[in-house]
Amino acid sequence: MTSLAADKPVPRAARFNVGVALMFAVLALVPFAAAFGPESYVLGLVTRVMVFAIAALAVDFLCGFGGLVTFGHAAFVGLGAYTVAIAGAHGVTDMTVTLPLALIVSAAFAYVTGTICLRTNGVYFIMITLAFGQMAYFIAGSLAPYGGDDGITLPTRSTLFGLAVFGNDRALYYATLGFLVASYLLCRAVVYSRFGRVFRGARENPTRMATIGYDVFRYQRVGYVIAGSLGGLAGFLLANAAEFVSPAYMSWQRSGELIIMVLFGGLGTLYGAIVGAASYLLLEEGLAGLTENWKLIFGPLLVIIVLFARGGLVGLAASVRARFSRD
């Protein structure tokens, strides 16, 4: 599969990006502004945005850099969330246990399913990742002791050494922001590392990569595990933010939304995934507040963005900037 920005070169190394720093600074200030308004609503909304931004980062890492379009990434989010919920149902709520567990479970799922999925490519890869996503979805729905289709409420948010650190919304907010910044920096480092170079190369020309000595499959599987674990991290945070977990987290529509967020923001940029998650969720929220039939606006908007804003919002911003600097 080709990519959106086929002729755009991949920069050789990470540079400090003022826009991204600004974005994180704004996120850090949100709680202060929120104190003057409907605080818990704003904190809850933006926390959710950041959680999905982490998941979208993972999808951008796979799609935008590895050329692996996954249509089942919500499964990893769900796995992370269910790990927290199931551990909680058994009285284990400490994040020193549940967070590593969520990461391990999603990484293991990525390793196993990646071994199978990565044998295929292109549209077949999209569909087989969908298949595993659907399997996870139906398994979650069958977990009768943990709520089945209806889902399950968390007994409490995760604790740290027994302390209810996520007890207040602000703490959870800043923890999520911290994880988002860390995830972004991690993805950025990995993309430019030796590994990332091979991972990106495999997307451009797998045959060439094999003939210079790379076992493409193994590198892609490692990349898949990284992205899967990030999905699990998002799930861990989502469970805490919502204090509730249900199979709906893993539906194929959710996976589709993650892809849309990434494309919304701009594929292959990482920060585009964050911009995309924010604009997608905020737009949804804003339109839904405007009219009951907001989907009549939202649907055509997606079409318009595809037709007229190639490269997503980030691409749009870049071309606007280019036009201004030319004048």
Binding site: R12, S193, R194, F195, V198
Partner: peptide, 9 residues
């Protein structure tokens, strides 16, 4: 090539 953090460039 399993080095993840150091920039290769």
């Amino acid at each position: 090539s399993y080095s993840f953090l150091r920039p290769a460039a």
